[in-house]
């Protein structure tokens, strides 16, 4: 008996069902979400991403940071994202509408980065951390990104960007000789390193949209928030 048309029809309907439900419905429901104009601050939120940060996002993508770092904060009471100080509130869809590519991520080998700019705004820290993660976070399994830096001969005046490396790690072991500039040389971050850091520092969802209120009963939220947020490791 030839069941081919029946099979084909069923197979088509099966995928059409989820395509309509998951993709199409949501595209219609919130695929045109717009920024919000705040009268008091006279600004639009989320704010436009500066060009240098957009270039930094491309570096973030090409190095594959997403495979160890998420960019989403889960609500209070589900996981411990907020208790860890990874954000003041849960992430909402409107936070992401300015981004060309949404990098939510699925792994937390490293901490969440959605608000890294809010909790670590020091670009020197970020550059050191990228150059050799052991300097700032000893024991980390994050790979070093020394190739984002340039060891070059000092010609004339030293560069204002030149990195100031410590002589040893936290536990006292000296930095390996090949990563410290020798006499007459200096270590400077490349444009890619600088834009990546600019991107990271720009990552912060501090504005409270209407939909972020009352996501959680207020008293309960306050009670839980009054516990001191934990310190980010190093």
């Amino acid at each position: 008996m030839n069941r081919a048309p029946l099979i084909f029809l069923g197979v088509f309907l099966a995928l059409a069902f989820s395509w309509t439900g998951i993709v199409l419905t949501n595209q219609v429901a919130y695929g045109n979400l717009t920024p919000i104009y705040d009268d008091a601050e006279e600004k639009i939120f989320p704010e436009a991403t500066p060009g240098v940060a957009q270039r930094g996002q491309l570096v973030y993508q090409d190095l594959g940071c997403i495979y160890c770092h998420t960019q989403q904060v889960r609500r209070l009471g589900y996981g411990s994202d907020i208790e860890r100080g990874w954000g003041e509130r849960q992430s909402v869809p409107r936070d992401y509408i300015r981004e060309k590519r949404v990098l939510l991520g699925t792994m937390r080998t490293g901490p969440d980065l959605r608000n890294i700019g809010a909790r670590q705004a020091d670009s020197t820290w970020h550059l050191l951390h990228l150059y050799d993660p052991q300097i700032t976070s000893q024991g980390s399994v994050m790979p070093p990104y020394r190739f984002l830096f340039e060891m070059r001969k000092i010609v004339g005046e030293a560069s204002p960007d030149a990195m100031n490396l410590p002589s040893s790690y936290v536990d006292g072991t000296p930095l390996p000789p090949h990563s410290v500039p020798t006499e007459g040389y200096e270590l400077v971050p490349t444009e890619r390193a600088k834009s990546l850091v600019a991107y990271l520092i720009n990552l912060k969802d501090t504005y409270a949209y209407p939909e972020t209120f009352n996501v959680f009963p207020e008293e309960e939220a306050e009670a839980e928030q009054s516990e001191a947020p934990a310190e980010e490791g190093h």
Partner: peptide, 13 residues
Amino acid sequence: PARGTVQALVNWW
């Protein structure tokens, strides 16, 4: 590209 987290839904679908 779709706007915002619709991308994430398409991605995991």
